[in-house]
Each structure stands twice: as C-alpha cells, then as structure tokens.
Amino acid sequence: MKILVCMKQVPQKDAPLKLNETGTWIREDVSYEVNEPDAYALEEALRQKEKHGGEVVVITSGPARAQQVLREALAKGADRAIHLEDNAFVGLDAFNTARAFAAAIKDDQFDLIFTGLQSDDYGYAQTGVVLAELLGWPHATIIMQIEKNESGIRVKRELEAGYFQFVDMPLPAVLTIQSGINKLRYATLIGIKQAKNKPLRKVALAEVQSAVSANLQKIERLYVPQKTKNTEFLEGPAGEVAKKLAEKLRNEVRVL
C-alpha cells in the first residue's frame, strides 16, 4: 500500500506562548514538536507498510523549521518527504491547506492518506476530511484500528463515551488517526543516518498558488482567555501548601 501521512509541526505542549504585535498569531520564537496525533498516524502507516509492503510518504507545510518533522519521520522509516515550504502556509485555513496538499500530490497515486485527528494548535479537526472531499475519496475519522481486506479496508472508529464502530470502506480513502492507536517507535541511529539520503521534495508556494484562494475564514484576534473563575493560588513550601490544601478540603470543599 502506498500511504501519504500529513504531518504538522506545532508549538511544544509546555511552551509558553507569546502573542505577536498585531495580536493575530503567536510569536515564532518557541520550541516546536510534531503534532502528537500525527506521530500516531505515521506509526500506523509504517506498520501497514511492514505488513503489506508499499511506500510511506510524509508531507507537511510551513517554513524551513517544519522540515524537522519530515526528517524525524524519514528517520523512523518513511521513504520520502514533501515539504510545502513557505511562511504563508502557516496562516492558511483548513480548506486551503487541503487544496495545497491536493495540488502537491496530483502526480502521486496513494491508496491511503492519514492525518492526525486534529492539530494541537488550531484544533479545527478538518484538513483530512476536507482533503477527502477535494479528492472525491471516502473518509472515516478518529480511527483506532485498520485491517486490509479483499474489497478495501475495515476500520474501527472511536465514537463518544467509550463506544466504537467498525466500518468497511473501499480504497483509496482518507483516515484521521486517533492518538493511542499504536505504540510509537523511536528513530534508530541507523534510521537517522539513512534519512539523510532519502528524497525530500520542496514545493514552493508558487507551485500550488493557483490551487489556493483567499482564506474563507479569518482570525480577527488571538488573546489570552479571560478567566471565568476566581482561582485561589496556594503558595509556599510544599509542606505548607499541603497543609493549606488539607484545610481547604476540610473547611471549604468539605470532603474530609
């Protein structure tokens, strides 16, 4: 099977975020990491390839820094990478990101496209499903298991509150992958070495410009959310804080 994995670089989970001067995005000087569900999507693609043969291709969009995500994926076993490299890609909405991806892969023929179920930055949970519609492919979201069969694949969808559902679907298809579908592997030293010689195609904005339009939605402003609760911060040495907490539990929360 030939599988494309869409990956995104996002700010590290604990990274303190600062707003830019116009208050429309964060300042770029933070540490980045791979979007966690995308790491599971890559792992699943590698496992499918190990079972059924084929090729795993990874794609991302963003400035030069985003290449790190692709390098890591190649080190873990992806065969080649596509980097839509431009700062402008950071501000694209899901509709246009999907259109840019569709344009960049038009000469490839994939059986499956994986994305993480959502990104840790925007959190729209849309790009994969939009891409499926643009390609005219069926899709399924929040996937916890994938089995190949004669007519296509059988996937396990996670529903709310602990429910699941199996779905049979034909190929090609787009799947959005849930965190925890598998156990992530680490890159090996040999893998990291080999990654340096694996093909990484750079796609400039100009190459896909005709496929994208003005954004259909706009972030007017980004801000630190106003607190709705009166939070009491307990400070001091650990022992003292513990004492204060126990008092609160007894006198205010009344559970002791």
């Binding site: 975020l17 707003l19 964060i26 840790d120 925007y122 939605q217 706009k218 972030i219 007017e220 402003r221």
Partner: peptide, 11 residues
C-alpha cells in the same frame, strides 16, 4: 486555540 491556552475570535 493551542489546547485552550489562547482564544481566537474568528469571522
């Protein structure tokens, strides 16, 4: 946005 660290007004 950003896992709840920030909020955005979107039009």
């Amino acid at each position: 946005m950003f896992q709840g660290k920030l909020a955005a007004d979107v039009s």
